[in-house]
């Protein structure tokens, strides 16, 4: 386990203040199968929280509940966005969750392949743009409020295209971009919704080591800007390097929750990942 973790593992001080996301007793059943069972944890505000666990542990299911893709069977998911009263996400329809401040990416990329990279980012700013157009009528008539709003939207889109190093691909259809660029574009699109919490489902999957490094840097930048991140990731190098907090699931149950260093030494976690033969593995 220690071989996977590089030298930059110093624990960052935990910022005070309420968590951005609070999950209480979350349960998700599909017919007779309980994919997630009574999971409770909190993701710190301004932190990167990683959600790890072996395949089939229920990470993506939990993610889908938080982002409104599924409606949980039971439990509470509360978003504490600074400056507004807490929102209970499990009650909201999908598009309201996005407006409440949660954005996500997918394990299998879900860009709009037929639209350009720039259009993909503008779609993410649909709410404010729509309001400025008077539901599309103003845009046709060329009313004054709309061009200003659109300029602002394009500026924000350009900022994220620059941050993700995709500026020269702005007018190419998203479906034509190479895999690594599509991954970055998905993160840029999520950021264009101006989320308080960014949820990433295996952002490093399929990336080469150099691209993984770029991704880690991008995520740290996003955190510096004040957006909290919830992350599912199998690349332990990335997880241990950038996470402030690691939550471990196995068979739908939470088995560990702590700093990367704590979780790495946790016997249950090692058992879950490597089988029951703990003695042998725990030895340095």
């Amino acid at each position: 386990m220690s071989a996977a973790a590089p030298d930059r593992t110093a624990v960052r001080p935990v910022r005070p203040g309420p968590p951005i996301l609070e999950v209480q007793g979350l349960t998700m059943r599909f017919g007779g199968l309980t994919a997630v069972s009574k999971v409770s944890f909190a993701a710190g505000s301004g932190q990167i929280t990683a959600l790890i666990g072996p395949n089939g542990a229920g990470k993506t299911t939990l993610f889908n509940c938080v982002t409104g893709f599924y409606r949980p069977s039971d439990g509470i998911i509360r978003l504490h966005k600074p400056g507004v009263p807490p929102t209970e996400l499990q009650r909201l329809p999908g598009h309201r969750i996005a407006r409440a401040g949660v954005a996500r990416t997918f394990q299998n990329i879900r860009l709009f392949p037929g639209m350009t990279a720039l259009e993909n980012l503008l779609i993410a700013q649909h709410g404010p743009l729509m309001a400025a157009t008077g539901w599309g009528i103003g845009a046709v008539l060329g009313l004054s409020r709309y061009p200003a709003a659109e300029r602002l939207a394009i500026e924000r889109a350009k900022r994220w295209l620059t941050a993700t190093n995709l500026m020269e691909r702005a007018d190419d259809p998203a479906g034509a971009l190479p895999y690594g660029q599509q991954r970055r574009l998905e993160i840029a699109r999520a950021m264009c919704t101006e989320p308080a919490l960014l949820c990433l489902d295996e952002p490093a999957a399929g990336l080469n080591p150099r691209e993984s490094d770029e991704l880690a840097r991008l995520l740290l930048d996003i955190r510096e800007e004040g957006t909290s991140i919830l992350l599912i990731e199998h690349d332990m190098g990335v997880v241990m390097r950038i996470s402030d907090r690691v939550v471990v699931l196995d068979h739908g149950v939470l088995i560990a929750d702590g700093t990367p260093a704590e979780v790495r030494g946790n016997a249950k976690v090692i058992a879950a990942y490597l089988g029951e033969d703990e003695e042998e593995v725990a030895a340095p």
């Binding site: 893709f69 598009h95 779609i123 919704t193």
Partner: peptide, 14 residues
């Protein structure tokens, strides 16, 4: 966007 992926569009606030 709805035409290409309705669920995703909804997750982006549409």
């Amino acid at each position: 966007a709805c035409e290409q992926d309705r669920k995703m569009a909804s997750l982006l606030g549409i």
